[in-house]
Design a protein around this nucleic acid. Structure first.
Lengths: 335, 335
DNA sequence: AAGCCTTACGTAAACGTTTACGTTTACCTT
DNA sequence: AAGGTAAACGTAAACGTTTACGTAAGGCTT
């Protein structure tokens, strides 16, 4: 069906080696012949067969993307989807493809797609990937880039969002509005990003002289429902907070529900800041102040990094932190 | 590095043909030998090299998933993400993988991953894929399954959600609450799903004797913002509707904003029903009545269908319609 | 016991590339 | 003009499988 090197070679009465060289921009073929080879290749609609090529080069021109479908970010908001799209756009430029796979938390089996040598590199995403799984994957012998995660015990190629910085800025912003009883609600501290956001919150409280007012509730997930629960506990306590910094927008929305249920207005009775800048945040009433994550940037960087590693496996690992941006709307008290 | 058939063969002093037969459950090898082959294969950690295998079998054990990143459903809500996850789960059971690619609306180029014969089949998703692109893809010579789309001029393997049925049910439900001025807001009619939802709305209006009250506004996208605009136009008109059926939840949320901006309460002054059942719908205030789409079911069906087609390319095309479910909450006037 | 069929294996080709190595030709040097 | 060098091209091996075909041996029929 599809044209092969041999078809082109026969048509021009030359050898397939020359055809291969001509099409791959390798030296050793005259410029006029090269031109004719390219022409008849187009004419025949020739596209190199990837299986044959990667059999000899042992490169597949595909990158594996490993996701954790039970990550909270997935179900509540398409968190990794923009990242994935940005990656795809970047990779397709370099003639790379993306192969998807999901893992659950307790699966420690090696990834079939790397065992079968289907991928040249791997991108792992998610703050609560199983650490043992991450560690095992780093030993698989192919380049790995981690997003929103990092192994504790060794250096790796990592792309993080500046969770601590964003949380610090958000908390400080609330303090700037005059709040002193600023509470924090978040997800499990096992998740890297939750830990960092919590740390940023505490650092900001300390630096604003509010260390003794630190008050945080960590739920086992980061949904609207758990956000509502956490906020309810805070609001029903003896000295309720006047401001809440939520570890993500979903929880912030939940907090808004808890406030509404108690007749508290936002931002009048309770100021609110979230994290992520999901699409509803802007259109919520009141519009939700939140910390924007540059997901496209993260995706692009991950793609760029993995390609570097594939082409030059021995470059030293580097950890990058993508800064965040505080998007001030009205739920914090602005305007 | 990785063990090959030859390694196993040498270790047992047999030929690679026998090893291949033993591991692939093919006849022609004694049961005791077969057992020893399997054992040493495990021992050596043998995993067949996919490139070599697919070079000779011309099957890749991977399915391409084509998405349209500028589809509205993507940016406003992770619409196809649950579908993708369900597909992946189903395919991985059969030792298949998923390769992702995105297309933009005006690209008519053939998909590189099918030209390079990287995939055994294709799943296309999205209500506003370029029809010419769809038509071209159907002629590529590999099985194709369409989700939320269908080519006008010929039969194809299609998985649709019962948009018309869901819209009919939603509209009828509003009529059941006593509303007569029920309007519809939606996205571009070029999108298959929008068209069907519109049709369902009109059919319900007709069947409830409200044909002359049909009133619809179609925007060029289905975001919260355009939903707000459309609802605003309706609410500011001489005879504003008392109920709105929105073509998706995002637009319904926008309509709620428009109502709030005019001091209208929901469902008291304006009843509202959406479509999709996105995660915020349940936690909105008031909780949004909407039409649930069984995305996981759709994903599973698509995966199942494409595998059937890959294994038996000549089975006749079938169009499936997955039913929807009206989820009654409070925005419609229930409770 | 001769013939035949089945089973169990081996041999080797084939899939479509890339690439190390060999050969020829042309051109430059002196 | 002889020798050398570089460029242009061909030959063939290699990547790791699957599979058509060949062969040997064993068991069955008569």
């Amino acid at each position: 069906m599809a044209a092969t090197l041999l078809d082109i070679a026969k048509k021009l009465n030359i050898s397939i080696a020359t055809v291969s060289r001509a099409l791959n921009d390798r030296p050793g073929v005259g410029s006029d012949l090269r031109q004719r080879v390219i022409e008849t290749a187009n004419e025949l609609g020739f596209v190199p067969n990837m299986a044959a090529r990667s059999l000899v080069t042992s490169r597949t021109q595909t990158i594996g993307f490993v996701i954790h479908p039970f990550d909270q970010p997935f179900s509540s908001d398409p968190f990794y989807f923009p990242i994935l799209m940005a990656m795809e756009a970047e990779l397709v430029n370099q003639d790379y493809h993306i192969m998807l796979t999901s893992v659950n938390n307790d699966s420690l089996t090696n990834l079939r797609m790397v065992e079968q040598s289907r991928v040249d590199g791997l991108i792992l995403a998610g703050p609560n990937l199983n650490p043992q799984f991450v560690a095992a994957t780093l030993n698989q012998g192919i380049p790995v880039v981690l997003i929103d995660n990092k192994p504790g015990y060794r250096k790796a190629n990592v792309i993080l969002t500046d969770d601590a910085g964003g949380a610090y800025e958000a908390t400080t912003h609330l303090a700037g509005h005059g709040h002193t009883r600023i509470a924090h609600i978040g997800g499990p501290l096992e998740w890297v990003s939750n830990r960092h956001r919590y740390n940023g919150y505490r650092a900001a409280m300390r630096d604003n002289g509010l260390a003794e007012n630190v008050r945080a509730i960590h739920k086992d997930s980061t949904t609207i429902a758990t956000g509502e629960q956490a906020a309810a506990e805070l609001l029903d306590s003896p000295e309720p907070p006047t401001a809440i910094f939520a570890a993500n927008d979903s929880m912030a929305l939940g907090a808004a529900r808890a406030a509404a249920a108690r007749g508290l207005s936002i931002p009048g009775d309770l100021a609110l800041v979230g994290f992520d800048n999901i699409s509803v945040a802007e259109h919520f009433s009141p519009p939700l102040t939140t910390v924007r994550i540059f997901k496209e940037q993260i995706g692009r960087m991950a793609a760029h990094r993995i390609l570097e590693l594939v082409n030059e496996p021995d470059i030293p690992p580097v950890e990058s932190s993508v800064s965040t941006e505080l998007v001030t709307r009205q739920s914090c008290g602005c305007n």
